[in-house]
């Protein structure tokens, strides 16, 4: 009995030794091109811009309030719109990647879908300052019609 139980274990490892097809591990840095993610994979927060350098962020600070860690800081300015009215617009959308826990609460909170999670997961840098990012591109504007 005792020996039978030992042999059955050895049969299993022996089977895997001789049937070496399935590989569990990934050759990570080499398979960067073929890595696939679920579409909801949370890498880091990005703000998509369209071809006219326009984003959808109104600066409502819903994400800033939703964030549990103070990762997001929105600096606003007053802008004069085309119709002559003063309007609030974002000056800088500051994102501290070093404090982010990728909980997705800001994405859910955003009423205009201005931010989303990218699939970039390689975040290491040599200088911590690089982790503080400004998400809106210079001179970008808000898409017309987004309130």
């Amino acid at each position: 009995m005792a020996i039978k139980s030992l042999v059955s274990g050895m049969r299993l490892t022996g089977y895997y030794f001789t049937h070496h097809k399935e590989i569990l591990t990934q050759e990570y840095p080499d398979n960067r091109e073929t890595l696939t993610f679920g579409e909801r994979f949370r890498g880091e927060v990005v703000m998509p811009h369209d071809e006219n350098n326009e984003h959808r962020c109104t600066g409502c600070t819903a994400c800033e309030i939703a964030c549990p860690n103070g990762t997001i800081k929105i600096l606003t300015k007053m802008e004069v719109g085309e119709d002559g009215k003063k309007k609030k617009a974002i000056e800088k959308f500051v994102y501290h990647l070093g404090m982010c826990t990728f909980c997705n609460l800001c994405i859910v909170a955003c009423p205009t879908d201005a931010i989303k999670m990218s699939h970039d997961f390689e975040h290491s840098v040599f200088d911590r300052k690089q982790l503080t990012k400004v998400l809106n591109k210079p001179d970008s504007k808000i898409v017309k019609g987004v309130e």
Binding site: F37, G38, E39, R40, F41, R42, T101, F102, C103, N104, L105, V108, M117
Partner: peptide
């Protein structure tokens, strides 16, 4: 990963239900 967006720290539950529908 496909449904929740994360593999370990999912944070898929919110008060009132779920963050997303299933994939």
């Amino acid at each position: 990963e496909e449904t929740c967006g994360a593999r370990l720290t999912m944070n898929y539950n919110v008060p009132g239900g779920l963050m997303y529908d299933i994939h």
